[in-house]
Design a protein around this nucleic acid. Structure first.
Lengths: 216, 216
DNA sequence: CGAGGCGTTGATACGCGTCAACCCAGGTGG
DNA sequence: CCACCTGGGTTGACGCGTATCAACGCCTCG
């Protein structure tokens, strides 16, 4: 269920973590924000690749499936972030909303300078993916969770409280674990007084230094 | 030990797997090929990022280290491939030659159109990295090895014989395994008559279909 | 001939996956 | 307003796959 709106919030004000956004928007055709219900498909693997997507609010997961149904989430995207890069004419991944999300499609304007502003964004995604390879290839469950929280804390610019809009199985599929293991590590970090769990959708970091030590 | 030469082989003839190379070279300043001995450092993490690098011949590994010395190889690069993309001013990874390798530095020519040709390359690297995330996050040792061989076979355009210029520990650090496990899986695939091992640096694929089944 | 690096193979340990039971919150309907 | 149901989350018992540790073989090079 999609609803078109004219909201202009996240994109209208420059954001410290996303300096190239204004330039990007300047070279994109104006377009409305599309509202997605939780767990709505934004595009599917095999779909024709078209516009890029800017998250105005909410959260998105990007993932692939193996033939037998195992899922790997390659990235989460939050407000101010752009996703939907493709190398060919088809999407290689699925994109779904996690919670209620507002997303603006970015299509090149006539001047065709959109690509100039894309490269830095694509490169940041590349570095992100490559760093995540280290996590998946060489870190244990506890280190993966710690690295995940540190990453979220930086991107949310939050204080001690980190929002977890996604459910446990999403975290598991992002970190290459099972949701049971995610739950157990949360308990372990809580018992070690490194975090608190005010609710299932939030964690409070009590000891940032310990968290950073954990991811090496 | 570096030696400058004027070789112009891989880059002078168009390559089916690397269609954008000629355009790329047209917008780069002419530069000689640098010869690297095996295991030579091309750039290190923290080095200032500068040119891109085109592999003329030989093989290169790109990797990161954790604080306690664990290594994750994020990519191998062979003749005709370009590496060295960075998002900021510093390299986030190490690049080393594996065998004796010839590498050409690509620096933008005056016309400044190099960036136009970079985006497709960067996007291909991104897709590659994201697909590797699925391997590291969700596949077991045997599936990882099978996926690795399929990937190499495609990139080498070889027949049944695949070259493995890198040593066992490199394969292990690329696939998130130990070199003992790599060795054991090789033996298992050999016992299953899926591959042969004519030498430690080559495998012969006897049953491609079986190999493809293995990686799902 | 000896030394050292790489690769293979075996024995054992352990981290995480699997399977199962249970809890809890939110939603629905009587 | 309460009973029930359902889906997400937690916890426990157990097993498997891969890491770890160790021994040994082979090849190259001094």
């Amino acid at each position: 269920m999609l609803i078109q709106t004219n909201l202009r919030n996240a994109s209208s004000q420059p954001h410290p973590l996303h300096p190239e956004l204004p330039a990007l928007l300047a070279h994109a055709r104006p377009s409305a924000v599309t509202l997605y219900d939780p767990n709505a498909i934004i595009y599917a693997q095999g779909d024709a690749a078209g516009p890029l997507y800017l998250v105005e609010f909410g959260a998105v997961r990007i993932y692939r499936l193996t033939a037998d149904g195992r899922r790997q989430i390659s990235a989460f995207h939050f407000a101010g972030e752009v996703f939907g890069f493709e190398a060919g004419s088809e999407h290689h991944f699925y994109a779904e909303s996690i919670d209620r999300a507002g997303i603006r499609a970015l299509r090149p304007a006539g001047d065709d300078h959109l690509a100039d502003n894309l490269l830095p964004l694509a490169l940041r995604s590349l570095i992100r993916a490559q760093e995540h390879l280290l996590v998946l290839g060489r870190q244990n469950a506890q280190e993966r969770m710690a690295a995940f929280f540190i990453d979220l804390a930086e991107r949310q610019e939050a204080g001690r409280i980190i929002d977890l809009p996604m459910q446990r199985s999403d975290i598991a599929d992002y970190l290459g674990l099972t949701f049971e293991t995610v739950s157990r590590i949360l308990r372990k970090l809580k018992d070690a007084r490194i975090i608190r769990l005010p609710s299932t959708k939030q964690i409070e970091v009590l000891d940032f230094a310990a968290l950073e030590d954990l991811c090496e």
